[in-house]
Every structure is written in C-alpha cells, then in structure tokens.
Nucleic acid binder design. Structure first.
Lengths: 187, 187
DNA sequence: TTGCGTTGAGAACGGTCGTTCTCTATAGTA
DNA sequence: TACTATAGAGAACGACCGTTCTCAACGCAA
C-alpha cells in the first residue's frame, strides 16, 4: 500500500460505504482507517480532517449519481424516454440490498443544520438534478412546472423507498410522470 | 417548577425544538436540561435516557403532523379537497421560518441505520400517512396507485422544500396531484 | 428545634471520538 | 556498516457526552 493514489482510493471507498451504511457521526475515523487498511497517520496525511474526508465522499456520491443517471438515459433516444429512464434507474437502485436512501437526503438530515458545507453540497446536488430534468423537459417542449413536478416525484420516490421500504415507489413515480408528461404534450 | 406534568411538558418542548433545529446527536442532554430549565437529576427522573426522550419527542412529532393535516382538511368537505388540503398544509409549513424539513426524514437519515426504534417510528409515521391518503382516495373512487403517487408527491415536496429551499414545491406537488386526480376520475 | 426525606445544582465518572505524538522498524545512501 | 529520513502501529491527549453521584439546602412532622 505504497501508492498514494491507491491509498486515497481505498480510503474513499471505505468511507463511502461506511458513511452511507451507518451514518456519518456513527462512523469513527478509526473504523475508516481499519476498513481502508492503512495507518491513522497515513489517513490524516491524505485527508487533514474528518470534515475534509466527508466533503470528498460527498463529491464521490455526486459523481456516482451523475454516472448512474447518465448511464440509464444513454440507452434512451427521445427526451421523454430519457426522463422516464430516471425512474428506471431509481427502480434498480431501490432493489439493491445495500440501498439505504439518498445519501444527500440522509446527510442533510444528519448534518445539514450544523454544517453549512454539507447543506450546500446537498443543495447543489439537488439543484443540479433539477437542472438536468429541466433541460430534458425543455427539449420536450414542456413547462418549467412540469420539470419541477418530475423532480419532486423522483425525490418522493427516494424517501418512500428508503423509509417505508417500498421499492415500487419508483414504478409509481414513473407512472405519475408519464401521465404528467402526456398531459402537457397533448394539451 | 414543581408539577411533574409541567416539567415533563417543558422538557418535551425544549427537546422537540432542539432536536428538530440542530439534529439529535448534535444536541446534548445538558442543552435540553438548560433549555427546559430543570436540573439534570430531574431530567433523568422524567426520562430514563436520551433514547427514551427521543422516542417521546418522535411521538410528539407524529401528533403534531396528524393535527396539522387533520386541521387543514377539516375545512374541506369533499375527499378531493381534503387531499389537496394536504399540499396547502405543506405550503404553510414550508414558509415558516423554522422549517427544516420533515423531522422523520431527518431522523431517519441521521439514526435510521443505527437505531431500529427510530427507523420503525419513522416508517410507521410514513405508512400511517399513506394509509390516510389511501382512505381518502378510496372514498373518491380512485385506485391504490393514485394514492401511492399522491403520497410520493407529498414526500418529494418535503425534501425539495428542505434541501433545495424551494417552498413552492408544495404548490407544484398540488398542481401535479390535481392532474393525477382528474385523470383518474374522468377516465 | 431536631431529625429526616426530598430536591436542586453541578461535579465527577467512564467511554468515545477526532487528532496528535511517540517509538520502533525499515529502506536508502555513502 | 553507519546514518538518516520515512512510515507504520497504536498509545496518548483533550474534549465532549450520557449518566451517576455528592452534597448542601429545604420542607416538614413531632
């Protein structure tokens, strides 16, 4: 474990999984250290503090989300299908064994009130998603209101799947989205 | 401050506000004690542990939510208007200065992975809300799918208003709900 | 007044966590 | 081989938190 780049990746992978699975405050730096298999000194030489590590993990989550969404929509051709692909992506995610809700919603709930950085990153991620939806809706000739509604459906599906344990929330959100889209396009 | 009932109420009020405003782990028992204006010994004679106190606070949140929803729907007469009143209730809530998102979503994000009690209470609250929506939708002659979709819209509005800071999420959710309801009733 | 049970205020305890420090082993160089 | 610089392992430190304990003040019955 000499390569700094590789050690850094190991730490980020470990922290990513631990923070997501158990919550941020519930995971100590020692747990991250042991999961990453490096020494505490090395860990602190790679990331100056737990806060700094958390910021990097949050950035990683942003990348993961963006990749997942863009991968799901890559097989779709029309803007409408790209929009609906979002809910298919959610469906696959909700059914994973380690699904524990949206990492940004969870982080915001845990630290949003106490850490402006966390609140701002979560907010940025949500706004970026809304922007993505809005751009597709615009291509489609829909209104900004429709875009907002489709984003709300995606958010609601995530909390419903996580807390109520209902993976079919993605399917329901998709069905609602289809209705809302069709209504605007045939009006 | 001799009346045990009154002291208990003071503690619950203080803990309610502090936990909601700053998060649960960020608030120490000493902060609760000082906000409630009682001694630590008395606090622990009223609630045997922080966990026990948290459970009671969560129950209080459940009662607050139920009262808010039923109050909002009390002025409506038809099932459709009662359903839409939910989003009006959300709208008023989102615009309050101290709005910091749904307490159950936040608690679940913070402790759901680590405390089965918190996870179960949050789940119970969400399921009860879904049940309430479903009963109104049934009165209205709508399908279970419509009920699920209306609940998802409400959840999504809450996270969107909280994280993105968009109080108009309630309005957007309401507009979407109107479309979905109308579509089922005129089909 | 005297003794006793209760209560309040907060010091104290044990544990944990983020962070730093010490010490040892090792690798590289002349 | 001798010296030096680095890095690993984990002990140590200071702070904080949930919880308990001490102790003094108070109310009250006789």
């Amino acid at each position: 474990m000499i390569d700094p780049q590789q050690a850094r990746t190991q730490v980020l992978l470990a922290a990513n999984a631990l923070f997501y699975q158990r919550g941020i405050q519930a995971v100590g730096m020692d747990a991250v250290r042991s999961a990453a298999g490096i020494s505490l000194k090395r860990l602190y030489s790679l990331f100056p503090s737990k806060d700094a590590l958390l910021i990097e993990v949050l950035k990683g989550w942003t990348a993961e989300w963006n990749e997942g969404v863009s991968l799901a929509s890559s097989s779709a051709t029309t803007p409408r299908d790209k929009l609906l692909a979002i809910y298919d992506f959610l469906d696959g995610w909700f059914r994973q064994d380690d699904f524990r809700g949206c990492a940004f919603i969870n982080s915001f709930g845990e630290l949003g009130a106490v850490s402006p950085d966390v609140a701002e990153i979560a907010r940025g991620q949500k706004l970026a998603f809304q922007h993505y939806v809005a751009s597709l809706v615009e291509e489609l000739g829909g209104s900004p209101a429709l875009a907002a509604q489709l984003a709300i459906l995606a958010e609601g599906a995530q909390t419903t799947a996580a807390i109520s344990g209902r993976p079919d929330a993605a399917f329901q959100a998709r069905a609602a989205a289809e209705v809302l889209i069709r209504r605007e396009l045939t009006a």
